[in-house]
Design a protein around this nucleic acid. Sequence first.
DNA 1: AACGTTCTTGACGTTGACGTCAACGTAAAG
DNA 2: CTTTACGTTGACGTCAACGTCAAGAACGTT
Lengths: 141, 141
Amino acid sequence: MTTRTTATTPPAPSDEGGRTWTIAEVAEEFGVTHRTVRHYEALGLLSPERRGTTRVYHRRDRTRLGLVLRGRRLGFPLEEIRTIIDLYDAPRGRRSQLEYVLAQIDARRADLEQRRADLEAALTELDGFERRCREDLDRIG
Amino acid sequence: MTTRTTATTPPAPSDEGGRTWTIAEVAEEFGVTHRTVRHYEALGLLSPERRGTTRVYHRRDRTRLGLVLRGRRLGFPLEEIRTIIDLYDAPRGRRSQLEYVLAQIDARRADLEQRRADLEAALTELDGFERRCREDLDRIG
DNA sequence: AACGTTCTTGACGTTGACGTCAACGTAAAG
DNA sequence: CTTTACGTTGACGTCAACGTCAAGAACGTT
């Protein structure tokens, strides 16, 4: 649809749903630079397959990148984002592990709800401000 | 306006509306350091009165600091926060000014609603994850 | 007058999140 | 085979948001 089949097309498209991506493709797709993607890998946020020296990204990596960028939009530091998404992949076999994970979930939720409160307050204020501005505009005519 | 009521230390308490605060007091009250407060002033986020060389904070300054910190919790850069709260104090006399302000408001709202969407998505995922964890916990017994 | 507290202005250090070369490998295209 | 395009690893630069001294001023207390 958008781009033609490029030079470095996925090497072996013989498998069913296992499409892969290059670093340029994921960067382009998510609107970040390759440098950003590699930076996230250096921080342990991504760990793409290596085919020789070249990085090969799977759906799993794209999912994680999506989570990272959402966390970034929400203003979380990358270190914190890492602990969160690592939590999703954490082993949950033993009871102690599960209880730790559940505690972390509660902490995360508290944080998110604080943000939500701030967000609602900001939006409410913005609405009130807009109303006043429109009244001013009406007065002017 | 400067009724030389107060000394430089914790001022006269009986002053009803015009109470002022020192930098240490506002910092303490908002849970930041004096360095942070001065940094915000350097960026134009605050502009407290000066009595001689000493900063004197009024309710207005506390309000603004509150807005700044809420913006910070929401992950906005300080520069952007400045343009937003400056917007609240902007002159709205002429029609062109009002229309500019209203346009800015729309942009801000779009940004905030994007964040809200991210936030809701994150909370929803967190809920689902917690549910799965609790199921795991039940299975273990 | 000497002292301690709280305030002031620099000015340099630090951390996070990348940007920006440099120098090199590799694989398809001309 | 050379070019071209994309990939790789360092390593240093940058910008925001402060932290951390250093050195002095202003003022009440002793």
